[in-house]
Computed example of a mutant assay.
Amino acid sequence: MRSSDDRVYLAPVDHLRAVAAVLVVLYHGCQLLSARIEGRRFVPATDWLYSSNPAATLVFEGHTGVALFMVLSGFIFTVGAYGKPVRYGRFLTNRLLRIYPLYLVVALLGLATQVSLPTLQDLLRILTFATPTQPYGGVFWTLCVEMQFYLVFPLLCRVLAERGPGALLRLLAAVAVLRALVWLSSPAPAPHTASLYLGLAGRIDQFLLGMLAAWVYAHHRDRLRARWLRPLAPAAAVALLWSFNQVHGFVSDSPLKLLWSGAEGAVWALVVAVYVANRPAGGGGWPSRAAARLGEVSFSVYLTHFMVLTLIGEHMTGRAYGWLPGALPPVWAAFLVTLLVALPLTVAVSFVTYHAIELPFLRLRRPYLGPAAVAETPRPRQREGYRGR
């Protein structure tokens, strides 16, 4: 990105974006295509995949890539804006330029798959991201949550700069209490947690924890370089996801699920802070550059992978399955089809959509940060073309 733009360049962050995008693609591919290979539609309540293998549960619970994306949003915005005044109008304009162009293309294409002509209500739902039922809309709800976070980020960043991390920790505690009160006050005999989990009320923990990780990174970077932290951070994330899978957490409405967003955000905040602190921005050779390039187009991967999976599920599952060894369990077949067919195809499409649709609008963004109001820790170098999500 340009030095005046709104993102700090960190190659390690691009690596983590790539991880998040790949996890989401593998997760959706395994869950959806395994059912299609068996000749049926996927029903989460009864068809969720479980395993005692921690590596498998990382894929089966790959929806956690969304949490990683949200933690990264809080982290990168805060590293870039900490201690500086944010010009609110320009900030929101930049966010719209970041999200809306590709989102509108994908949403309108999904609308075009319907037989009937779109109504005004359909168009209004698209403008507000309220289109999860269309073929490619399974991830649109996260964009709505992101936009809600953008509305409050400048205030939260100022609070962090002026009041310190304790203010955000108290906010985390208050949100947890209020969320529990909402759940307890539900008139339903068995209150659902989905509405909380799929909205900012249930996900703000992850943005706040990303902001706190940025504060720790800025003030205690040397401590994050402790050798024992490097294996502990990813191990904690995998162990937490394995435990979540073993108790059938995603399809559960246990009150313990009210704590899941914070726990999930905490382990990813640890992973982000430790990885960024320990990974040189310019090192790693071609694998690092390749991962960074994938991370650069991760938003396109995120928005277009449903289109690719829908194509494979509707028209190519049988053919792709036929390429694989006989007697292969459906879940393994789905994993291989996703890894060898859906993921490469999605990445290829994403490079096209990034350069043709995203990048022209990204170049229209304007600086939104004023001069530093407090002394800052030196920030990492920046790069042309870097962008959010």
Rank of each mutant, 00 (worst) to 15 (best):
P255G: 09
G285H: 11
Q114Y: 15
L259D: 01
R40N: 06
V374C: 10
W48E: 11
L336Q: 05
Q134H: 09
L171Q: 05
V276R: 00
I37M: 10
H15W: 13
P287F: 14
A327V: 05
N245R: 04
G83R: 05
L120Q: 05
S4A: 15
R90C: 03
L200C: 03
V352C: 10
A56F: 11
R225H: 09
V301R: 02
Y88D: 01
P154W: 09
L311E: 10
T142P: 00
W48V: 09
S73Q: 03
A20S: 08
T93M: 14
L240F: 05
R90A: 12
A235P: 01
R40K: 14
W48H: 14
V71H: 02
R7C: 10
A180W: 13
Y82L: 14
A375E: 15
L10S: 09
V341K: 00
D122T: 03
N278D: 09
A375W: 06
G74D: 04
A291E: 00
G326W: 07
Y302C: 01
R125L: 10
L23P: 00
R319Q: 12
L143K: 04
R230V: 15
Y275V: 11
P85L: 02
D14S: 10
V66L: 01
P118F: 08
L256A: 14
A226D: 12
I357Q: 06
P234D: 02
V177K: 08
A176F: 05
M316S: 13
Q206L: 06
E376W: 08
Y88T: 08
E384K: 11
R170C: 15
F77D: 03
T193N: 09
G283E: 15
P12E: 12
R289W: 08
A81L: 07
S350R: 02
G164M: 07
R90D: 10
P360F: 00
A277S: 12
V216N: 04
H192D: 11
L208M: 11
G202T: 03
F75K: 01
Y368K: 01
V13D: 01
S116W: 11
S350K: 03
V182D: 12
Q31S: 15
G283A: 15
L109R: 08
Y275G: 01
A218N: 09
T338W: 06
Y354R: 10
T377K: 13
S3Y: 07
R225Y: 07
A273G: 04
V271D: 00
E314K: 15
T131F: 01
V19E: 00
R319H: 12
D205I: 09
W48K: 08
V71C: 04
G388T: 04
P54H: 01
T310E: 14
